[in-house]
Write a protein that binds this DNA or RNA. Structure first.
Lengths: 139, 139
DNA sequence: TTTTATTTTCAATAAATTTTGAAAATAAAG
DNA sequence: CTTTATTTTCAAAATTTATTGAAAATAAAA
């Protein structure tokens, strides 16, 4: 297999994986591209490689930076911004899990806490409190 | 807070959480409803509670059964099928993680294995092989 | 077998999400 | 300050995904 084929295959697969985990496909693809790139890339590099518009590229790069998994790199003598992704997979996993906790787990924990205040002693209410409490402990 | 409010709040929150993890909102809501229900429920119960169509209910119940986290329960003397969800949260987590591995992780592992066959010894190729190999090990 | 109840399917529709592209904003160079 | 390069924004369009509802299929009862 040549490099171009392999790269394409990997980027596509990473995009698909992202989709099924609630991450925008292009966002995952940009991340894949930066991950395997030895050099940092410009918005134009990314647009060209993934055949996407400037707006799309810009928004998804921004989202990756908000997630803390892509950074701007200043290259002296260059006008355009360059971007790169950290190569440490464990650190990546740690950061993604930190962000998902903050964005998605904490809100549900809040709800699970709130609904403990439900009044009543019917079977329905007992089951409800048991399950929501178990979920809270589990998280 | 009364039971109805609490239940509604929990079901909504569980649906939202599902969405952001790539699980259909209604599928997550049906699961939430069955989780907190002391008795097994019929398709009509679910339709009424979540205000969804029969087709939608049916398809998502089926999907939950395919995931192995909801089961049919036969009630003697009743025509309609009844459904229930397991209450053990750890077992639930184990089952979800087993299914996601099978459906989503295994395909990407396959790709990561395949792309190791890329030929070349440029920096690009070296970086590509290092990163994809690290990802494979990590998974 | 015929009738009635229930479940399943799936084309059409609706809703949600993503993508584009061009204008506005910002930043650097002349 | 003016011009040019670059980035950002966002309404409109395109695409993807979810939902409906009615017909077909299946299963139980009469």
């Amino acid at each position: 297999m040549n490099y171009k084929e392999g790269r394409h295959k990997f980027i596509q697969a990473w995009g698909t994986l992202g989709s099924s985990w609630g991450i925008n496909k292009v966002m995952a693809q940009i991340h894949a591209l930066l991950l395997i790139s030895p050099k940092s890339l410009t918005t134009d590099d990314i647009m060209e490689e993934l055949k996407i518009s400037r707006g799309n590229a810009n928004m998804n790069i921004r989202a990756l930076m908000d997630w803390g998994i892509v950074e701007k790199e200043l290259i002296v003598g260059e006008r355009k911004d360059h971007y790169r992704a950290g190569k440490d997979i464990w650190e990546l996993a740690r950061q993604v899990s930190r962000e998902r906790r903050k964005r998605e787990i904490e809100p549900i924990l809040k709800v699970l806490g709130e609904v403990q205040a439900v009044k009543g002693k019917s079977d329905e209410v007992k089951e409800f409190k048991t399950v929501t409490s178990d979920l809270k402990d589990f998280s």
